[in-house]
Amino acid sequence: MTSNGGLSIGDLVVSYGDHQVLNGVDLQVPEGEIGAILGASGSGKTTLLRSIAGFIRPSKGHIDVDSRTLVGPGVWLAPERRDVGLVPQEGALFPHLDVAGNVGFGLAKRTREQRAQAATRVEQLLEFVSLPGKGRVRPHELSGGMQQRVALARALAREPKVVLLDEPFSALDAALRKELRGQVRELLAQAGTTAILVTHDEDEADDFADGVHRIAHGLIIDRPVASRSEEIR
């Protein structure tokens, strides 16, 4: 990662016909930190996340990650070229693949050497998310929390510059949610990856992120709350 890193979004506009969903979003998340986008349903938070991932094409503005422009004047990179990882709601694990197949989904496996490297990387990641030896298990045999950790391992497998977390804890019960929040936060800190959490839960945003950005009517409406790491300092 470059030193001038992190996520930088400026004047981002997304429209569907006449309806403007994002009205010029400005957002900065320093490298290695977790930023939370907090907003109600219809506020534009998911649109913002999907714009960063590359599933939505903004009509204006820029998105830079680690000084590399993903979206800008004359520039638009497809999702597979952005170096982003995605952890959707409820994990969205591929049901036809086992855990190892899910985690190694994005890793190159053309040559024998690549396959050996991928297998090693999958083992490392499963260790990393505290699921060693679960590679042959099918997703439906795992608990909700385990599934989310597999989804995180899959998102981290290609060492992305940014991990996007789309309400990843919403389907879990309160106790598990809190426990997993802590685990995922710790894992992201260890990986040193910049991350964006989208949520409508204020407690979750405060507890999980280094900086919280509120969004309403397609605009970031306040400055980030002092980042968690600064508070700790």
């Binding site: 599933f55 999702p79 597979e80 995605l86 969205a92 591929f94 989904f105 994005g106 290609r158 992305p160």
Partner: peptide
């Protein structure tokens, strides 16, 4: 087949056609 599975495949480096073929068509 949830569209989010294809979205995840795209963020794993798959082109639209490859994501459709290896995830949606497979399922």
């Amino acid at each position: 087949v949830p569209t989010v599975l294809e979205d995840v495949a795209r963020t794993c480096g798959y082109s639209p056609w490859r994501a459709f073929r290896s995830v949606t068509m497979r399922l």
